[in-house]
Amino acid sequence: MTVPELHQQIHVDPDRCLGCFACASACPEQRITWDDREGNRRFRAPAVCAGDCTRCRDACPADAVRLEPMGETAGRSWEPLSWSLPLARCRRCREPFTTQKILALLSRTLEATVGLSAGEADWPSCCPACRRDLESRRLLDAARWNR
């Protein structure tokens, strides 16, 4: 078995991962993939990566990716990485649209920036399409006075 030029091993901390797809978008080889299925967002990544690219690590907003230089190949795991995060479903259409973790972070951010406590507004728990629908109905409702 020939040993390829292995440069770094990829570690992902699933507890830190928010479930965004910055790493997947960042990878020039598109070797990090994700899909939403059965209520979860599942990520897959190789255990090792050739080259000295650090884009996935740099892109990660949550510092969940760690790259370790590989000297010895012995004792290393070659198993591809896989982790998943529960998806949040839209309150209205029940379609999943982001991860629960992202939604929780959004909720905390809104609380901190504009004092909007969880459940106070209807849109954060809705998918973008439903947000558009809600907003357009609100505006139409206002507009009926002008018609």
């Binding site: 504009v114 004092g115 909007l116 609100r138 505006l139 206002a142 507009a143």
Partner: peptide, 16 residues
């Protein structure tokens, strides 16, 4: 309440 406002201008459009 200014602290809660994100400045989205929705009210500006909405006020009949």
């Amino acid at each position: 309440e200014p602290a809660r406002c994100i400045g989205c201008h929705g009210c500006v459009m909405a006020c009949p």
